[in-house]
């Protein structure tokens, strides 16, 4: 790997910063003020730091899961729906099941994982059995999950005071994750997310299963001929990814919110896809990029509350970033295109 290739994933970030800065200048705003306010918004007080971390938890969980599916060569776009189904399953336990104190929360988290895994396995089955590409299956399942949420909120799970399209009634205190210092952060969920990432890292670098996924992702035909049972491994990768995403959805309803809401995921699944793409599928970069996204988005949310002018700064920054990553993120592709270009000039 050349040095340029190694630092390549960082370049879109820098370029996005540059573009955003130019935009700010064009709008007559001081970039220093704007970024300063954003930094304040993300890290200005300890409460804000907790908020960044709380937002990070489901993002990191989903991104960890995606590392598995990408390794196997799968585009698990359905991750958004898997987060939502995790949230729904956790909500079902929280609303409808009364358990002893020590069991309630583990049960909710387990249900969240099962919900996400089930939804992912469905996309996996559509692919392995039905020949439906995981992108299309995933998108359809995402929409179904959203429709299902809306149905639950407006129908069977509507609050006693009448249906609003906002959400269910808040869960009982015993059903919610204990929060850290009045923030939206649950330390337990943070620990789980870190463990999940570490587990995925171990699986990918050191396990037989991870190696099989890698072989499948590189050349499914050869892997099959070498004895890798492709359908089973693909399904497993999907299910495990779905379980982690579902857990993220559970954390959303049990700590970030306190009930099932209409847009419970709010695009965290798509964001996680961007995180992994931006990290160039690299293990070590993934949590860093996730943290960066989390900080930028939270910083600009707070910013939005304070000043109207910079309200879209976070969106612009991430939007430009995503665009640049999609265009230039793949070093090999860029180099190929560049070569082709240069050679057609010479020729």
């Amino acid at each position: 790997m050349s040095r340029l290739e190694r630092i390549w994933p960082l370049l879109p970030g820098l370029a996005a910063l540059l573009v955003t800065t130019l935009l700010l200048l064009a709008m007559g705003t001081s970039p220093i003020d704007a970024y300063g306010a954003m930094w304040q918004g993300a890290f200005g007080t300890s409460a804000r730091v907790y908020s960044v971390l709380a937002f990070l938890v489901p993002l990191l969980l989903a991104a960890s899961g995606l590392l598995l599916t990408f390794k196997a060569g799968l585009w698990n776009i359905g991750i958004e729906g898997q987060i939502i189904m995790g949230a729904i399953a956790a909500s079902w336990v929280a609303l409808r099941v009364e358990l002893p104190a020590g069991l309630q929360i583990p049960m909710e988290l387990a249900a969240a994982m099962a919900g996400g895994a089930l939804w992912a396995a469905l996309a996996g089955l559509l692919k392995t059995r039905g020949g439906v590409h995981e992108i299309f299956g995933g998108l359809a399942l995402n929409n179904l999950a959203i429709l299902f949420t809306n149905y639950l909120i407006a129908g069977p799970w509507q609050p006693p005071e009448g249906g609003s399209f906002r959400g269910t009634q808040p869960f009982g205190a015993h059903a919610l994750l204990p929060l850290f210092e009045n923030s939206r952060l649950s330390l337990l969920s943070l620990v789980l997310a870190v463990l999940a990432f570490a587990g995925v890292a171990l699986l990918l670098t050191n396990s037989h299963w991870g190696l099989r996924l890698k072989a499948l992702g590189q050349n499914a035909r050869s892997a099959f001929l070498l004895g890798v049972s492709s359908d089973r491994e693909l399904l497993l990768a999907m299910a495990l990814c779905g379980a982690l995403a579902g857990l993220g959805g559970g954390v959303r309803v049990l700590s970030w919110f306190d009930s099932l809401r209409q847009s419970i995921s709010g695009g965290i699944g798509y964001l996680a896809l961007m995180v992994v793409l931006l990290a160039g599928f690299r293990l070590a970069l993934t949590p860093l990029v996730a943290f960066f996204f989390s900080a930028v988005l939270n910083g600009s949310i707070t910013l939005q509350l304070r000043t109207q002018l910079h309200s879209a700064l976070g969106d612009i920054l991430t939007g430009v970033l995503v665009l640049l990553v999609l265009l230039f993120g793949n070093y090999a592709r860029v180099r190929r295109a560049f070569r082709r270009n240069r050679s057609s000039e010479n020729g």
Partner: peptide, 14 residues
């Protein structure tokens, strides 16, 4: 390399 070996994997990984 199409049907048998996996490009991108080392001998040890194979």
């Amino acid at each position: 390399l199409e049907e048998g070996l996996v490009a991108g994997l080392t001998l040890t990984e194979h």
